[in-house]
Amino acid sequence: MSSTYTLDQLLPGQSGRVTRVGGEGALRRRLMDMGLVAGVDVMLLKRAPLGDPLEYKLRGYHLSLRKSEAQTIQVDLQ
């Protein structure tokens, strides 16, 4: 059973599989260029000391996104 969340709703250590990248224009393209496309598994590693941005692990590397950016990405929990 899986349900749809956005990437910012993951808990540290939790993974999700990307189903859809929202947003538009340059930001959306940048997210996809960094490997955030449908089907990829992403794990939330931690939040910054002030709660935002967030640090993720995907495709074997670490990527930092702001909460607002992570909200545009839908994931299925695993």
Binding site: G25, H62, S64, R66
Partner: peptide
């Protein structure tokens, strides 16, 4: 100006 995305790689 479009908001600057903060899509930043954290290298090892």
């Amino acid at each position: 100006a479009p908001p600057q995305p903060f899509v930043l790689e954290l290298p090892p």
